[in-house]
Amino acid sequence: MATGWGSPDEWEFVAHQVAAPEAGEVTIRVRAAGVNPADAKHVASARSGLELPVPIGYEVSGELSALGPDTRIGSGAASVGDEVIAFRVRGGYATELTVPAEKVFAKPSTLSHPEAANLLLVGTTAAEMLAIAGAGPGETILLHGASGAVGVSVLQQARLRGVRVIGTAGAERFDEVRRFGGIPVRYGDGLRRRVLEVAGGRVVAALDAVGTDEAVDVSLEVVADRRRIVTIAAFARAESEGIVAIAGSMPDSARFRDGVRSELIALAQNGDLVVPVARTFPLDQAPAAHRLLSSGHPGGKLALIPEG
């Protein structure tokens, strides 16, 4: 947990007794914890309404080790030993934790624990971006950061909707963009020209998962309706330019993301939504995992694995 504001290198592992679940709660034995930029970002500096120490980790995959009286999880009836995932919880970097049962769902059997622990944060973010973009079958959208974790989920969900996606990436990641149905274009000087050449017509919306000025500038140049330009990173530009910024901490975003969880889990169970995992780390190497994540090129999702 974060006992002070700062980098993951300053986090501490603290032994504590896990609370027995009351009615409406369950206890999860963690098999994998998802690693997300928000884990570190939210404790990098003091935040209003947040008091130290702060438990770290928003999503996990594991097994139910206890249920409160007369308690069902978000996906229905459950028993001790069932494999589950939990999203929008606090303190996922743990061996075991007790959480509200409504935040817990049966784990898709098609995903490993490291994959399942990384399904919902990026998946619900991508779903919300696509919902705001409002693109339909045959329409073309621009996606900045197409080979990143959120980008890969956008690509898969867009393909299921019949939406054509032009995705920016480095040349070394083009195959990853193509793998999930996108049309890769290289970011950098001349991006607007390359996008329009590939589009061959109207680009109806733009999704920004990187937050660079280039991403925002090109989006403004190729998309007519600023309400269909969505960013998860360029918040200052969103305010000044009148484009849409979203984040899980925003009430509207939180409601949407909670509402779409079951749909995304079903897609994963059917094999229509996969989660590429680049590497796993032992739980006590969380700072090393975040150093790789902050490099900007992890090559896929990362997960922490408790010993045993």
Rank of each mutant, 00 (worst) to 15 (best):
A106W: 04
E176V: 08
V30K: 00
E176N: 01
S295P: 05
I305S: 06
P298F: 12
G170C: 01
R228M: 15
R29Y: 02
D217G: 13
A254V: 13
T212V: 14
A135S: 14
G248I: 12
G81P: 12
D9R: 15
A20L: 10
L273Y: 09
G211C: 03
P108C: 13
V99R: 12
P108Q: 08
V18N: 03
A38T: 09
G134I: 02
L142C: 01
P55Q: 15
T71P: 11
L119I: 01
I56G: 02
G300T: 12
R88I: 07
T280G: 01
E96W: 05
L64H: 10
V163W: 12
G181P: 06
E214R: 14
P306I: 06
A33P: 04
G259N: 08
L196W: 07
S112P: 00
E12A: 07
L264D: 03
V210G: 09
G296E: 11
V84K: 00
V260L: 06
V84T: 00
V154R: 14
E128A: 10
M1S: 06
H290S: 04
A33R: 13
G138Q: 10
A135N: 04
G151W: 08
L120M: 08
L273K: 07
G68E: 12
A254M: 03
V60R: 02
L264C: 13
S75W: 09
E102Y: 08
H113I: 00
L130S: 01
R257V: 05
A133R: 03
L267V: 03
R178A: 08
P55K: 05
Q156D: 02
L111P: 00
V222R: 10
E83S: 00
A206V: 11
R193K: 06
Y93P: 01
W11I: 03
I132F: 15
D284W: 07
A268I: 12
L97H: 14
E63L: 05
G68I: 03
E214D: 06
A233M: 10
H16Y: 14
R72F: 13
L196H: 04
S295L: 04
A127S: 03
I232C: 07
E214I: 14
G134R: 07
A133V: 05
L292E: 01
A126R: 11
Q269P: 10
G91W: 06
V275K: 00
S75N: 08
V185I: 11
R31L: 00
D189I: 04
P8L: 04
A101H: 08
N36W: 13
V104W: 12
D175G: 07
L196R: 09
L52M: 09
A169P: 07
G49Q: 14
G308V: 08
L119F: 04
D39P: 04
S112Y: 02
S219Q: 07
S7F: 09
S295T: 13
V218H: 14
T231P: 01
F281N: 01
L293P: 02
P8I: 03
S249P: 02
Y93N: 03
D189M: 11
E239Q: 04
P100W: 03
L50C: 00
V218C: 05
G6E: 06
D213G: 12
A40W: 10
A238W: 11
P306F: 13
K301Q: 03
G201A: 11
V165H: 07
Y187K: 02
R173T: 04
A40K: 03
H297R: 06
I183F: 06
G74H: 15
I246R: 13
V104F: 12
A158P: 15
K103D: 12
